[in-house]
Amino acid sequence: MTRPLIAVLDYGIGNLSSAQKALVRSGADARLTRDPALARDAAGVVLPGVGAFGACMDALRAAHLEDVVYESVASQRPFMGICVGMQMLFTSSVESPGVAGLDVIHGTVELIEGNVRRPQMQWNELHVENEDPLFAGLPKTPWVYFVHSYSAVPKDSLVVVATCEYGKNLTAVVRQENVVATQFHPEKSAKDGLQLLHNFVSSCS
């Protein structure tokens, strides 16, 4: 099997190389890039993210990658957001009022509430609500690693395919056609995370 080319969008904030390295380990020819031509040629596109919503959106726009996201999503090729890369796909976040998100998925990103420590910085069980090719070969309740203080609330709850319980049920994975996104870090989730990335890589051809 040839290794599908996956563009990992590099807008220069934080640790983005871990996602790229884990995708390579999962069978992809994954490259960190800000080159729109390379993203256009790629079989799949990944938007990683670590840090604050507003800082990431600003950096994404400064790197001229916003249109690359829209183009990739519209092309129907597999697209994956990770952590803040997932949150940026939403309309807005209370973390950074006034900063427009990408609005690929309608909804907001809200502060985690309840009698729990913030950030949620731990492994947690994934509760699969709707079967998805992303979960192929995974145990019934996979364990994955979360680091976040904010959580996405989609307008259409049907896009939520997995949740985790932390204070209350939080959105863990969303799926909207070719777009899939995880609040947790599959690249830091040991073998279950690598299996999930392998499933994404397999969907890219």
Binding site: I13, G14, V50, G51, A52, M121, V147, H148, S149
Partner: peptide, 9 residues
């Protein structure tokens, strides 16, 4: 460090 990389770092 928190301003540039987020408190989780």
């Amino acid at each position: 460090i928190a301003a540039e990389f987020g408190v989780q770092c």
